[in-house]
Amino acid sequence: MSTIIQAKNIHRSFGKDALFTHVLKGIDLTIAQGEFVAIMGKSGAGKSTLMYQLSVLDKPTEGEILIDDIDVLSLSEKEQTEFRLNTLGYVFQDYALVPDLSASENVMMPLLMRGEYWNAARIKANQSLDAVGLEGKYENLPSELSGGEQQRVAIARAVAGEPKIIFADEPTANLDSISGNTVIELLTQLHKKQKQTIVMVTHEDEYAVNCDRIFKMEDGKIVNIEKRK
């Protein structure tokens, strides 16, 4: 399998002088296309910070990141936005849906931004919602959905545009165990059926059982790479 993410010597620090914090201390990793990986570690280990670097939401202090053979750190802000739109999908810890938009419209947003026509975007959005088990809830506002349902809308939004990589930042953190299992099951199905590359941050072992590899982090470093399959 070809490499889709390659990170070399990633450092990320914050603050100056007494407030200086070195969060990532020279991370090297590669992720292959179609892989389902988990980044795990204790709180403060730097797993979310690493994910933000890999997902082009933040810029490392030092290092190099190639995604799909593109040096993403050399892109302008506008190009990075466009890159995220066309190549990456996101599932955030607290769903991150636009509260004023219906479930269908939330999913449509990135599709419309990609230039899809209104009707085509709506059809595709509703199909994505169907795929995550939200048939008939297209017009519901996020406030009218449960936490698990909102996270499923977020997954539908992340996958609707068929991005090359999906980043999921502790997608089960705010959910009960049943909803959490449903979300993990959805991600696993995506990985299995569509060979989607998924990078997931989690601190719970049980949710990482279906991953291909697990990057274990401690104090800003990858201390172990566990191959599950």
């Binding site: 995220r84 636009v98 509260p99």
Partner: peptide, 16 residues
Amino acid sequence: RRHIGILKGIGIERQV
């Protein structure tokens, strides 16, 4: 602000 950040995060242009 957070939703604006998320919209930008998922690729929605600032201009929008």
